[in-house]
Design a protein around this nucleic acid. Structure first.
Lengths: 337, 337
DNA sequence: TTGAAAGCGCTAACAT
DNA sequence: ATGTTAGCGCTTTCAA
């Protein structure tokens, strides 16, 4: 016996007014007399009424839902930012619909379609580049969209993020400053992941500058998991000349490599230095602590929410914002032996 | 120039058939002639049509949305399970709506209301106890609901989880086996958190058994954060007699305490042993590695999705399942000096 | 195999 | 301050 949930009409009957008044009472309480308002509120409570979302969405053409499509939830890389994003939305009575893609552009397209067909008023996406059909779909729907985890000054799109290329350069510079000449890079898989590609490109640019006498002995791309990181370490450490520093595309890779290095008897940073990227919680707990790039996750999530909300409420009023990263020095990077 | 998204009617015009046929073609393709079907498909593609969710929800009274309300997203404790949960749902074309509560029951109630009013067909909740009004609301709506992260055999509700009490007992037993007699417990805040309460109760029961000569010098409840963990450590280590082992309510607390202990010059486990709970990724990276309780997160997420989906599709067909935890021994627990 | 028509629950003019 | 009414886009009988 599934009791059908009460409708506006039911509340109206109970309170002895018309449905329209109930609607008003909910949406613009100041336009209904205090007496009726109280009566209506009582009826709502008595019946346990909650507005039906479909009906409302149909009538207003707004859902108060924002969709977010992120590469992974398991990975704490995005968790903090999304949490902050959601907290701001919740304050504004906006609900967050989340999809995750496992770093697969096809899957991303699917998730975007799903969220949009569920009526998302706006979309939060990670990264800037995506396949044409995805971009076209987004354009055709004219859904306010904001991209995080990256920043492009030259674009008409909305970004709240940082410049992965520059950040990549920064780590590489630091590694060179410490005197390393023979380095390897273990990056995330760049195909379909512009953040990974940008970070890598930044690192490469700095190290490949001819006047610094440094060289990259290997660039290895792999998935963001501890297991893949361990395998990557095995591959990279076997090169000759053996690298004295390994720059990782993110902290998961870096932490996985540190662990593997120690398991194989390599000292970190004694035998090999390792740097990370993102500064997830893990970074301060591994031993040695990870020298890494701190990404302003929480701030990014909050600003993203604010700007996206603004853009939805008043198209054109959302702005791109570039956030800054900075390097956190811990023990995993030291001069070569 | 916001192009209104194409509607069923638009597609019908383009394909030269009625709206009803389009609807059929989408929902029960086998009931429409192959020729028309092709024509319709072409029109759909050409227009980039996606069904409007509100309309569909209104007409079918189903949304294909499942809501999940979890204590925190930032915290990797829940991330893995939710990720697994979502992957199963996505395969079934069900979308996940997520709310987080920051461990606050009032906020949980709000989130549940939001998700249900958005038409969630089912709900995933963490834990088993909640305030009466929350439970009443849930009951009144008769929304299929499944509880994770806990298990109760004696209930008519659906659970996919494990017994926190027993798991708490297990850690405590192990600590006693190692010979500790003077222990402290740093727990999460039990009020409104039955998992924390159960774990704590289990630990207390074992340690307080009169015949084992052990005693609890302090039970300290605090929030799940590294900072709170550090403060908790300071408090607990200052007791006299000083505890030789500290049992933490989860890995975040345990890791935070290990870090603090080392910063203060206490050896772990030399001066004090510390145990965790959950076995999050961090647990294997702290030094020493955390002796902790492994929770089958991924399995829990998957089974939860399957059972909840079953319950939604055929009320009564979802089943509770009890999963087992087991202790992972790493270096943070050793006999007292 | 297809079409016509009646809602699903809500909001937003427009009246009163 | 409140009521009336006409949809919003879709599914689903019921007829043809």
């Amino acid at each position: 016996m599934i009791a059908k949930p009460p409708t506006l009409e039911d509340v109206a009957q109970a309170a002895g007014v018309s449905a329209a008044t109930i609607s008003r009472c909910i949406n613009t309480p100041e336009r209904v007399a205090k007496g009726t308002r109280l009566r209506i509120q009582a009826a709502i409570d008595a019946l346990g009424y909650t507005p039906n979302f479909g009906g409302r969405a149909l009538a207003t053409r707004r859902t108060n839902i924002i969709g977010a499509v992120i590469p992974s939830m398991a990975n704490s890389v995005f968790a903090g930012g999304i949490q902050a994003f959601q907290e701001v939305l919740a304050r504004e009575k906006v609900t967050l619909l989340i999809g995750s893609t496992n770093y697969d552009p096809d899957y991303e397209f699917e998730q975007i379609q799903t969220l949009i067909s569920h009526g998302a008023d706006g979309m939060l996406l990670v990264g800037s580049k995506r396949p044409d059909r995805t971009q076209q779909f987004l354009n055709s729907r004219r859904i306010p969209t904001l991209n995080v985890w990256c920043f492009r000054a030259d674009s008409d799109q909305l970004y709240v993020g940082f410049d992965n290329f520059t950040a990549g350069e920064d780590v590489a510079k630091l590694v060179l400053e410490y005197g390393h000449k023979t380095v390897a890079i273990v990056s995330g898989i760049c195909d379909g992941n512009d953040r990974a590609a940008d970070r890598l490109a930044g690192m490469e640019r700095i190290i490949n500058q001819p006047d610094n006498g440094a060289r990259i002995v290997m660039v290895h791309q792999t998935k963001y998991s501890f297991d893949h990181a361990a395998k990557a370490f095995d591959t990279v450490i076997a090169q000759s000349p053996r690298p004295t520093a390994i720059l990782a595309g993110n902290d998961v890779l870096a932490a996985g490599m540190i662990q593997r290095a120690k398991a194989l008897g390599f000292g970190v940073p004694g035998d090999v230095s390792i740097t990370g990227f993102d500064d997830i919680a893990l970074a301060q707990f591994v031993d040695p602590g990870l020298t890494t790039v701190r990404v302003p996750q929480v701030q990014m999530g909050q600003r993203a929410a604010e700007e996206l909300l603004a853009e939805i409420r008043e198209p054109g009023s959302g702005h791109s914002v570039e956030l800054l990263t900075h390097i956190i020095k811990r023990g995993s990077l030291a001069p070569p032996a």
